[in-house]
Every structure is written in structure tokens, then in C-alpha cells.
Write a protein that binds this DNA or RNA. Structure first.
Length: 301
DNA sequence: TCTGGTCAAGGTGGT
DNA sequence: ACCACCTTGACCAGA
């Protein structure tokens, strides 16, 4: 078990997700921004190792507009050494690295142009992890997508589209249950048709489930992972008290987290804490996990 | 230097 | 047909 958090860190004093407006795109602006983003990512990875946080989701904004037609710059070549160094550091410290394209990346859209843009975006995400020299345990997670008025056909379209994805993307894809349309059971069914592993999101499952307990749901998701894809991944979040169902809590609810740790036995997933205050809650979670024998320990230099 | 309106992108659901 | 919302940090024009 590793514990980590997504994308941003509130302590290091920099953002790895600096961007700019499409209207102000230039190659110079791109290079400046990526340089700063990668330097900040380096600072965050060092922070994580120093604090025993060994799971981290890289922000999709590392290379702004990387998959947009406006970007013709060979950022892969320009930043290859920097990506390689980041990846070497992550490997050295046994970090679990992942990425998560946003809500506009939809491989099951019936619209060809949406699918094409989604493929470009997925290729970008896979390229980042490839440049870092990470194996197939570094995953790119997406949701199943839209319903388009016909769940059955949209699930079938997901499978057909999956088969059209470049191998470099298929190798890293993972699907996550969402809070409205496609729950864990749908994801597991898609796993059977595609082989892509399923990331279990605890908060989405609370909002959208087929009656499975957390333990049962986790057992189903765990079976979709193998030694190539790596240990199962779980997105853990707690419900914001008194808010709309599905809204993330601003701080970790330690009592709820401890219940999850118990319910998750005997499985041994890597946990991504999707909580507003980022590494602060992840550190509390690590502390709460205490002497749990499942924890992966940091390797010193 | 501060701030609030705005930002690449798609889909859903209410009107 | 149209529009607010999702979810969010960061940009940036204007004060």
C-alpha cells in the first residue's frame, strides 16, 4: 500500500500546473512554462519521498496545449532529459505515478472529432509516462464517458473505440467508476471485454452503486489488476458533510479513513487521497495507517 | 499589486 | 433550441 494525492502540493510554494491562454500561445511561452512545471514537479517528488508519500498523480497541465493543434513544438525532444530524470527518481523511490485526463476526454463519444481529440490527449499522457521511463504500472485513468441516450450501445462503443486506441495508450489505460452513469459493475464488465484494469473510487461508489459493500466492491476491482498493471489503485475521498452528495470533503475524515483501512483488508491497494488540502490530508492518512504492514516504506538515497 | 471574470475541450438535464 | 452546471486552479485585463 502506498498513500498519495493528486497533482498539486500546498507546501512546496510552486505550482506544476502553470498554463496560459490559448490566445497567448507561443513556443517560447510553452518552453518557459514547461520548464517551471517540471522544476516544480521535481520539488514535489522530493517532498513526497521525504514524507513517505509514494503515490502521486501528475497534473495534465505539465505541458499546456500538448494535444491541441496549436502546439507543433517538439516538447518531447526538448524536455526528454528532464522527464527521464523525474522518472529515474520516481523509480528509485518506488513511487506509483499516474495521470488523469479531464472530463473532456471521452473515448466513447459517437462524434469522430471528439474521439480523435481524446486519442491525441491520451497519447500525450502516455508520452509523458513513456518519457519518464515508467513501466505499465504507471496508469492513465479515465471515466467510461457519456450515455448518449443508450447505455448499452455506449458501452459497446467504448469497447470498439478501445480496440482502435494506439498500443501505447491501451498499455496504460485504466477506467474509474463515476458517480452518475457508469458504476463499478459497468467498469468490471468493460474490463472483461478490454482487459483494462478498474480503479475503485470510494466517493463515486457511495453515490452510484449496485448495493455492493465497500469490501465487496474493492474485491471486484482488485481482480482486474495483474502484475503488469501493478497493485490495484483506489481513489479515496470522503463526502463533504452537509453538502451535495458526491462533493469532496475539504479535509480528511480520519474516522472514515480508518474504517476504509479496515474494510480494505486483505487487499493491498495504492491509495490516492482526493481531498482539497492535498498532501496535508495524505500525511494525516499516512499517520493514521501507522504500522499497517501493507505500507510501502520509502527507500533512502 | 490586487481581484473578479474568464478560460481548450463535452455532456447532461432543466427550461 | 438554449443555457447553467459540472469542477477547478490559474490567467490576465483592468482597477
Amino acid at each position: 500500500m502506498r498513500i498519495g494525492y493528486p497533482c498539486l502540493n500546498t507546501s512546496v510554494g510552486c505550482s506544476p500546473a502553470r498554463t496560459f491562454r490559448l490566445a497567448s500561445y507561443s513556443d517560447v511561452r510553452l518552453v518557459e512554462t514547461v520548464e517551471r512545471n517540471l522544476a516544480c514537479t521535481d520539488a514535489i517528488l522530493h517532498y513526497n519521498v521525504a514524507h513517505g508519500l509514494l503515490a502521486f498523480r501528475l497534473t495534465s497541465d505539465l505541458v499546456p496545449f500538448a494535444s491541441h493543434p496549436v502546439c507543433a513544438y517538439a516538447w518531447q525532444e526538448r524536455f526528454r532529459p528532464a522527464f527521464q530524470a523525474l522518472g529515474a527518481f520516481a523509480r528509485q523511490h518506488r513511487m506509483r505515478v499516474s495521470m488523469h485526463p479531464g472530463q473532456y476526454t471521452l473515448i466513447n463519444s459517437p462524434r469522430e472529432e471528439v474521439f480523435a481529440a481524446s486519442v491525441r490527449d491520451l497519447v500525450y499522457h502516455a508520452e509523458v509516462l513513456d518519457l519518464m521511463g515508467l513501466d505499465a504500472t504507471a496508469r492513465v485513468q479515465i471515466h467510461v464517458g457519456g450515455v448518449y441516450g443508450d447505455r448499452r450501445r455506449s458501452l459497446d462503443r467504448f469497447v470498439a473505440r478501445y480496440r482502435d486506441l494506439p498500443a501505447a495508450v491501451r498499455r496504460r489505460l485504466a477506467i474509474e467508476n463515476d458517480d452518475r452513469q457508469y458504476g463499478l459493475a459497468d467498469c468490471v464488465r468493460l474490463h472483461e471485454d478490454t482487459g483494462t484494469p478498474v480503479i475503485f473510487d470510494t466517493l463515486h461508489h457511495e453515490a452510484n452503486n449496485a448495493g455492493e459493500s465497500v469490501g465487496d466492491a474493492l474485491a471486484l476491482a482488485v481482480r482486474t489488476w495483474d502484475t503488469v498493471a501493478g497493485p490495484p489503485m483506489v481513489d479515496y475521498a470522503s463526502q463533504a458533510v452537509g453538502e451535495r452528495v458526491g462533493k469532496h470533503a475539504a479535509h480528511i475524515d480520519l474516522a472514515d479513513f480508518r474504517r476504509f483501512l479496515v474494510a480494505s483488508r486483505p487487499h493491498d491497494p495504492d491509495l490516492m487521497l482526493e481531498i482539497k488540502d492535498k498532501e496535508q490530508s495524505a500525511l494525516l492518512a499516512l499517520q493514521a495507517a501507522g504500522e499497517d504492514p501493507r505500507l510501502v516504506r520509502a527507500v533512502s538515497d
